[in-house]
Lab assay of single mutants.
Amino acid sequence: CHSECLGNCSQPDDPTKCVACRNFYLDGRCVETCPPPYYHFQDWRCVNFSFCQDLHHKCKNSRRQGCHQYVIHNNKCIPECPSGYTMNSSNLLCTPCLGPCPKVCHLLEGEKTIDSVTSAQELRGCTVINGSLIINIRGGNNLAAELEANLGLIEEISGYLKIRRSYALVSLSFFRKLRLIRGETLEIGNYSFYALDNQNLRQLWDWSKHNLTITQGKLFFHYNPKLCLSEIHKMEEVSGTKGRQERNDIALKTNGDQASCENELLKFSYIRTSFDKILLRWEPYWPPDFRDLLGFMLFYKEAPYQNVTEFDGQDACGSNSWTVVDIDPPLRSNDPKSQNHPGWLMRGLKPWTQYAIFVKTLVTFSDERRTYGAKSDIIYVQTDATNPSVPLDPISVSNSSSQIILKWKPPSDPNGNITHYLVFWERQAEDSELFELDYCLKGLKLPSRTWSPPFESEDSQKHNQSEYEDSAGECCSCPKTDSQILKELEESSFRKTFEDYLHNVVFVPRKT
């Protein structure tokens, strides 16, 4: 048989008469490798580009789960590009990614509803959504962080984005990388972005840091009482949809009607710091009717980097990364020049730590249904340095008659930039024990000054392991946590139920 035959053949030295091919099969003959313009397919066939392209389009058009959109890589027609490569849609070739590779997620039936953290986790790592997304989240724990972890990498949506009755959302900033909504599939009414009845939605994105392009379709905003109209108009300008909307697409009466839409800028007039305090004062603000001013709200939190936005980490279910302080308005003076500047002394802060701070007014709604208010920009203030805590785990070892090696770990709280350490030492008198000992005694162990690591005695271990207080009263049991108490109650309830079950099964009433 021919060298490319495997198993047997019907005619000697003829690659077209093989029972099976050793390498690849091409047009009725066995070959060692697939010549151009053919590609290896499933490690035994040679196919042309049209064959591989037909497989790709067949799966793409069917949208069946589990099928493969075949691509070409290293002269092979394979189910998908290997790690580190992405497909070129024009020629199906796998090309190296520039940075992290995109991950295209194809949605069944063309859309997916995100109504819980669990459903959001199914899209973790996706960068391109081939379909439409509907966000409908009523509640949950730590929602802002969970949504950002699972949806934060999405850069492109081919269909539309719909935010509907998501009472738990305060902001859409968890879509931190969303840059493009194509609108290839539109919501009824030709809408590519749809926001309806979101009672706590206050911000779409921080438009000073976020760009969003909507290729096709219109915007729809109705019944978002805490979303200011200025935020919607800003989205029109940034996304390129200005002029597409009709009169009733953006409701003037049901958007922002319960919001404090600040239209003035508060400026800080005085800032002073110490290692654990920050004193702030800002310019006074009074609405047209000074009785509408209820006070100020001061927001602050630790910020290692200057990239904080107002609604980071917030949701309507209680999660809030900001510390909020309510401040009463100052006494009002008739003389504008003698107006008191409101302020606040922030206490209990960490030394040498940068804080993000902003302040906003708290006002009631005027009778004319106009909203007044003022808010400052987010500023960054760093507390002063102070003395560091003591170095940890000092170790001293003498390696000769004239040297001592000293080692330690950095302090747990540096409280500033540590530039150097101060080492103090003092000579001590020799131990009298060394002169009084009889060095001729056998088995004498000389006193040693070398360091030995501390260890816990058996008594201390027994005390720590004991669940009861000892007789001397030195140790006591740790208080039980809520989960331990709940577990004990469940076990007790189970024992009672099981005992009742045994009584009912074992003891049967005697027939009379």
Score class of each variant (00 low, 15 high):
residue 103 K to Q: 04
residue 103 K to S: 11
residue 104 V to K: 03
residue 106 H to G: 06
residue 108 L to S: 11
residue 108 L to P: 14
residue 108 L to M: 14
residue 109 E to V: 15
residue 109 E to F: 02
residue 110 G to P: 02
residue 111 E to S: 14
residue 112 K to Q: 06
residue 112 K to T: 15
residue 113 T to Q: 05
residue 114 I to C: 08
residue 115 D to P: 06
residue 115 D to W: 04
residue 118 T to W: 13
residue 118 T to D: 15
residue 119 S to W: 04
residue 119 S to G: 08
residue 120 A to G: 15
residue 121 Q to Y: 01
residue 121 Q to H: 10
residue 122 E to Y: 12
residue 122 E to A: 15
residue 123 L to V: 13
residue 126 C to K: 01
residue 127 T to K: 15
residue 127 T to Y: 05
residue 128 V to Y: 04
residue 130 N to C: 01
residue 131 G to F: 02
residue 131 G to P: 00
residue 132 S to M: 01
residue 132 S to H: 02
residue 133 L to I: 02
residue 134 I to C: 14
residue 134 I to E: 15
residue 136 N to A: 03
residue 138 R to Q: 14
residue 140 G to K: 11
residue 140 G to P: 12
residue 140 G to M: 01
residue 141 N to Y: 12
residue 144 A to E: 15
residue 144 A to S: 15
residue 144 A to P: 04
residue 144 A to Q: 15
residue 145 A to M: 12
residue 146 E to A: 11
residue 146 E to W: 11
residue 146 E to H: 15
residue 147 L to R: 00
residue 148 E to P: 13
residue 148 E to G: 05
residue 149 A to S: 05
residue 149 A to M: 12
residue 151 L to A: 04
residue 152 G to S: 03
residue 154 I to A: 03
residue 154 I to V: 09
residue 154 I to L: 12
residue 158 S to V: 11
residue 160 Y to A: 01
residue 161 L to K: 00
residue 161 L to N: 00
residue 162 K to Q: 15
residue 166 S to K: 00
residue 167 Y to P: 12
residue 167 Y to A: 14
residue 167 Y to T: 11
residue 168 A to V: 09
residue 169 L to A: 03
residue 169 L to R: 00
residue 170 V to S: 10
residue 171 S to E: 09
residue 172 L to P: 02
residue 174 F to I: 15
residue 174 F to G: 02
residue 174 F to C: 14
residue 174 F to L: 08
residue 174 F to T: 05
residue 175 F to V: 03
residue 176 R to S: 08
residue 176 R to W: 01
residue 176 R to D: 10
residue 180 L to F: 12
residue 183 G to L: 01
residue 185 T to H: 13
residue 186 L to P: 09
residue 186 L to A: 05
residue 187 E to K: 08
residue 188 I to F: 03
residue 189 G to I: 01
residue 190 N to A: 09
residue 191 Y to F: 06
residue 191 Y to R: 06
residue 192 S to R: 00
residue 194 Y to M: 12
residue 195 A to D: 01
residue 195 A to Q: 03
residue 196 L to Q: 14
residue 196 L to D: 04
residue 200 N to Q: 15
residue 200 N to M: 05
residue 201 L to H: 00
residue 201 L to G: 00
residue 201 L to W: 03
residue 202 R to G: 03
residue 202 R to F: 09
residue 204 L to M: 10
residue 204 L to T: 10
residue 204 L to N: 04
residue 205 W to P: 01
residue 206 D to N: 08
residue 206 D to K: 14
residue 206 D to I: 04
residue 210 H to L: 03
residue 210 H to N: 03
residue 210 H to T: 00
residue 211 N to R: 10
residue 212 L to S: 02
residue 213 T to I: 13
residue 213 T to W: 08
residue 213 T to L: 12
residue 214 I to G: 01
residue 214 I to P: 00
residue 216 Q to A: 08
residue 216 Q to K: 00
residue 216 Q to R: 03
residue 217 G to C: 07
residue 219 L to G: 04
residue 220 F to W: 04
residue 220 F to M: 04
residue 220 F to A: 06
residue 222 H to Y: 05
residue 222 H to W: 06
residue 223 Y to R: 09
residue 224 N to R: 01
residue 225 P to G: 15
residue 226 K to T: 06
residue 226 K to D: 05
residue 226 K to R: 10
residue 227 L to V: 03
residue 227 L to T: 06
residue 228 C to Q: 07
residue 229 L to D: 09
residue 230 S to Y: 03
residue 231 E to S: 04
residue 233 H to R: 13
residue 233 H to M: 00
residue 235 M to F: 13
residue 236 E to K: 14
residue 239 S to Q: 11
residue 239 S to G: 08
residue 240 G to R: 13
residue 243 G to F: 15
residue 244 R to F: 02
residue 245 Q to V: 15
residue 245 Q to W: 09
residue 245 Q to R: 04
residue 245 Q to P: 08
residue 246 E to S: 08
residue 247 R to L: 12
residue 249 D to H: 01
residue 249 D to L: 11
residue 249 D to I: 14
residue 250 I to P: 06
residue 251 A to Y: 14
residue 251 A to S: 08
residue 252 L to P: 09
residue 253 K to H: 08
residue 253 K to C: 12
residue 254 T to W: 12
residue 256 G to A: 15
residue 258 Q to R: 06
residue 258 Q to Y: 15
residue 261 C to T: 07
residue 262 E to A: 15
residue 263 N to Y: 10
residue 263 N to C: 07
residue 264 E to L: 13
residue 265 L to K: 09
residue 266 L to T: 05
residue 266 L to A: 03
residue 267 K to M: 07
residue 268 F to M: 06
residue 268 F to Q: 00
residue 272 R to L: 03
residue 273 T to I: 07
residue 277 K to Y: 09
residue 279 L to V: 10
residue 280 L to N: 01
residue 283 E to G: 01
residue 287 P to T: 09
residue 287 P to N: 05
residue 287 P to Q: 12
residue 288 P to R: 06
residue 289 D to E: 12
residue 289 D to T: 05
residue 289 D to M: 07
residue 290 F to D: 10
residue 291 R to Q: 15
residue 291 R to T: 11
residue 293 L to P: 06
residue 294 L to S: 11
residue 294 L to P: 05
residue 296 F to P: 06
residue 298 L to T: 04
residue 302 E to A: 07
residue 302 E to I: 07
residue 302 E to H: 15
residue 303 A to M: 05
residue 303 A to I: 08
residue 304 P to K: 04
residue 306 Q to A: 09
residue 307 N to L: 11
residue 307 N to Y: 02
residue 309 T to H: 09
residue 309 T to S: 14
residue 309 T to R: 13
residue 310 E to Y: 15
residue 311 F to N: 10
residue 312 D to C: 03
residue 313 G to W: 15
residue 313 G to D: 15
residue 319 S to W: 01
residue 321 S to K: 13
residue 321 S to V: 14
residue 321 S to E: 14
residue 324 V to C: 07
residue 324 V to Q: 04
residue 327 I to P: 04
residue 330 P to E: 15
residue 331 L to K: 12
residue 331 L to S: 09
residue 332 R to Y: 02
residue 332 R to V: 12
residue 333 S to T: 11
residue 333 S to K: 05
residue 333 S to V: 10
residue 334 N to L: 10
residue 335 D to K: 08
residue 335 D to N: 05
residue 338 S to N: 09
residue 339 Q to K: 03
residue 339 Q to R: 07
residue 340 N to Q: 10
residue 341 H to R: 08
residue 341 H to Y: 05
residue 342 P to C: 15
residue 342 P to L: 12
residue 342 P to V: 06
residue 343 G to R: 06
residue 343 G to E: 02
residue 343 G to D: 13
residue 343 G to N: 10
residue 344 W to I: 12
residue 344 W to P: 01
residue 344 W to Y: 07
residue 345 L to G: 05
residue 345 L to Y: 12
residue 347 R to P: 09
residue 348 G to L: 08
residue 349 L to P: 01
residue 349 L to H: 00
residue 351 P to Q: 04
residue 352 W to I: 15
residue 353 T to L: 05
residue 353 T to I: 15
residue 353 T to H: 15
residue 354 Q to E: 05
residue 354 Q to K: 03
residue 355 Y to R: 00
residue 356 A to S: 08
residue 357 I to V: 10
residue 357 I to Q: 00
residue 358 F to V: 11
residue 359 V to P: 00
residue 360 K to V: 06
residue 361 T to A: 09
residue 361 T to H: 07
residue 361 T to E: 09
residue 362 L to N: 01
residue 362 L to E: 03
residue 362 L to P: 15
residue 362 L to T: 02
residue 363 V to L: 12
residue 369 R to H: 03
residue 369 R to I: 08
residue 371 T to K: 04
residue 371 T to A: 05
residue 371 T to Y: 03
residue 373 G to H: 07
residue 373 G to M: 12
residue 377 D to T: 06
residue 377 D to W: 15
residue 378 I to T: 09
residue 378 I to S: 01
residue 379 I to V: 07
residue 379 I to T: 06
residue 379 I to K: 10
residue 381 V to E: 12
residue 381 V to I: 12
residue 382 Q to S: 12
residue 383 T to N: 00
residue 387 N to I: 10
residue 391 P to E: 00
residue 391 P to A: 01
residue 392 L to W: 09
residue 394 P to G: 04
residue 394 P to D: 09
residue 394 P to M: 09
residue 395 I to A: 08
residue 398 S to R: 05
residue 399 N to L: 09
residue 401 S to K: 13
residue 402 S to M: 09
residue 403 Q to G: 06
residue 403 Q to P: 00
residue 406 L to S: 07
residue 407 K to S: 11
